[in-house]
Design a protein around this nucleic acid. Structure first.
Lengths: 203, 203
DNA sequence: AGTCCAAGTAATCATTCGATTACAAACAAG
DNA sequence: CTTGTTTGTAATCGAATGATTACTTGGACT
């Protein structure tokens, strides 16, 4: 019996490889924290070697910047797609658009965690820009009033907290976790749970 | 001219020293991230040696757990103190109690950042517990309805995002930062700014 | 004075991790 | 076929950092 050969990573154009790594990095960064995840974990999740990740993105920081920018861009696109239709249903459609991002591994956790990284010089700037753009979109493009905007964004931040805290895993266990969920997702939590697997599974 | 002697840290009972380190650690952890701050920075901020921090708290993780627990306990106490008085003014008094915690270095940033650490096995549990206790207090002890609780907590999470993003520093600079602030603190932002110094000064 | 314990540090170790370097292999063009 | 470019890895380095060990100092109490 011959030694099992490690499948050499099939060739790919660097642009595609970049995108593949960004997807993997979103999942891995979303599962832990920015500082807490290593470039090696990202590389392994993407199926390439660690030096290649560094080579394609320069530094870990630049990689994470691209991850955040990509996440906010995706969120913005999702919101934009939710605009058409009745004005009354707009807020709900946008809210659904937000929670449906849970289906994409790490997307929501990355956005959520970005709001805690204002202290990082480089990343903080990117996170502020992303948040500000979302706020501006809701206010101007979606046409929300100032108060509506505040409430919409506040609800989003509450969802962020639930996601960031992994309250989903404890659903049913802890005291008020059930009520927290019911308060935030009155239409039932079943759909959400399908999106949110285990406790520390990489999202 | 004799060599300037480094002032040896004055003797102190370990209980007092622990508290002093916790105060310093709150400021330092609040200024950056949990993973991103070193025990040495904490030690220097507290005016002791790095090994002594480790000795008093066992591990960096245990130190941070105590920092979080202390912050949530403080917040709970502040909320409790805001209960007496007219029922109508209760929400506003509690809100003021929350923002006034900005005066204590790192307190609010630590609480805010804790909502993004659910992925950490040990710390996540503590953060979930703190958040759940706050929710329970608002709902039961403060007597808010489910909807009131949801809105109150959501507003708190929005404040967390503003704090975590350091949007205060950009006030006036970026496009919608001004409106974000006005929407969240309609009573004027002057007081807040006095609480929030520089951009990356340790809070 | 002498003893004992608590408070505190200097020195250093062992890992981890991001980054660099040098090299190999696939593919395209002439 | 040969040559050049792009894709990719193995090996390794250097710095940062949490933790450990061994030692010192100060005070309280006989």
């Amino acid at each position: 019996m011959t030694v099992e050969e490690v499948a050499p990573a099939p060739r790919m154009r660097s642009a595609d490889r970049r995108e593949q790594i960004l997807v993997a990095a979103t999942a891995v960064f979303g599962a832990k924290t920015y500082v807490g995840t290593t470039t090696d974990e990202v590389a392994r999740a993407a199926g390439v070697s660690q030096p290649y990740v560094v080579r394609l993105f320069g530094t870990k920081e630049k990689l994470f910047v691209e991850v955040i920018e990509r996440a906010y861009a995706r969120l913005l696109a999702e919101f934009r797609a939710a605009l058409p239709g009745s004005v009354e249903g707009r807020a709900e459609r946008m809210g659904t658009a937000y929670t449906s991002l849970l289906a994409e591994r790490g997307m929501l956790p990355v956005i959520a965690s970005s709001t805690a990284l204002g202290g990082e010089p480089v990343i903080g700037r990117v996170a502020r820009k992303g948040f500000s753009e979302i706020w501006r979109f809701v206010r101007e493009d979606a046409g929300f009033t100032e108060e509506q905007t505040r409430q919409f964004m506040a609800t989003g931040m509450l969802i962020n907290a639930i996601v960031g805290l992994r309250l989903t895993g404890d659903y049913g266990d802890e005291l008020s976790a059930t009520e927290i969920f019911d308060a935030c997702f009155p239409d039932g939590v079943a759909k959400l749970r399908t999106f949110m697997p285990g406790t520390d599974e990489p999202w």
